[in-house]
């Protein structure tokens, strides 16, 4: 059947069945794009509409005039600029901790020989399966007793622990593929293994670092359960908590919320634009090889 169809499509390039298949295929792809992007397109449209056109039914799809007033309100009257800044600090901090600790453990697990290696790997992987709520109450108490509530570190420390298994996994997979000659040269030059890791291995590991940092950043930017529980002061809220808890004075402020939502997504859209391949590789690392 295989050769048969190939011949037919060669002879009849404009075969109606083939055209039908193509139309169906691209139709499905376009439908996929529409369904995926519609919600955020709608939020963007809402955010640039005058308030009167937002609360209108039947819905007015396109705004009669484009306004940026809602963004001004979100940034100046509502504290969304502060929330965005907080999220940025927490997400960046988490990404840095995960890259440093993840590369150290990843190096040990992939390139050094030692006893109990399998046990260590199991400890790391099982910790990724533990439910977050099962850890929330003691960590909340711990943070309260040590004064880490309403501080950036109070979120960076648990987030990093949650994402470390992923970071370690990415690094050990990457390091495994590096040639032995790299570290041998360093060891001959009298560097310790830690020296080799930081002076020789890490400088050539930009891809693994980017993958880890980007995905961990997105995770920390998106987290809600711990952020809601740990950041009780308004000035320390992250963007997810800020958007979830924001209430207007009289009516529900869909215009301001839409502007805030759109701004909260911009960093994610930028990361996707620049690192799409890295993100996909990272999310699927190990899948298919196992």
């Amino acid at each position: 059947m295989g050769t048969d169809t190939r011949e037919r499509s060669l002879f009849k390039r404009y075969d109606p069945q083939r055209i039908g298949e193509l139309v169906g295929f691209y139709g499905a792809i376009i439908l996929l794009c529409l369904v995926s992007f519609f919600p955020i397109i709608w939020i963007f449209l809402t955010s640039i509409k005058p308030s009167s056109e937002i609360v209108q039914f039947p819905v007015k799809y396109l705004p009669s005039e484009i306004i940026i007033e809602n963004y001004r309100i979100a940034l100046e009257q509502a504290p969304f600029a502060r929330y965005l800044f907080n999220s940025f600090v927490v997400a960046s901090g988490t990404a840095i901790v995960c890259v440093v600790l993840g590369s150290m453990a990843g190096y040990a697990l992939s390139r050094l020989e030692f006893r109990f290696k399998l046990h260590v790997l199991m400890i790391v992987l099982v910790s990724a399966m533990l439910p977050f709520f099962g850890r929330l109450i003691p960590l909340f108490n711990l943070a309260r007793e040590t004064g880490f509530l309403n501080s950036y570190l109070g979120l960076i420390i648990p987030y990093s622990a949650f994402q470390l298994p992923f970071a370690i996994w990415i690094f050990q997979a990457y390091f495994k593929e590096l040639p032995d000659s790299l570290e041998e040269a360093g060891l001959i030059d009298g560097l310790s293994h830690i020296g080799v890791l930081f002076r020789i291995i890490l400088p050539v590991s930009a891809p693994a670092m980017a993958t880890t940092a980007v995905i961990v950043f997105i995770y920390a930017w998106n987290e809600f359960l711990f952020a809601l529980t740990f950041m009780t002061q308004d000035s320390m809220k992250t963007i997810t908590v800020g958007i979830a808890l924001y209430q207007g004075e009289f009516t529900f402020p869909w215009a301001t919320i839409s502007a805030a939502v759109f701004m909260s997504i911009v960093p994610l859209l930028l990361l996707m634009l620049f690192f799409q391949r890295k993100i996909v590789e990272g999310l699927t690392a190990g899948v298919g090889k196992a």
Binding site: F37, W221, L268
Partner: peptide, 13 residues
């Protein structure tokens, strides 16, 4: 990108 985008959105948002 269309497949990746819903994953990247924060659940609460």
């Amino acid at each position: 990108a269309a497949i990746l985008f819903p994953w990247a959105l924060p659940t609460i948002i």
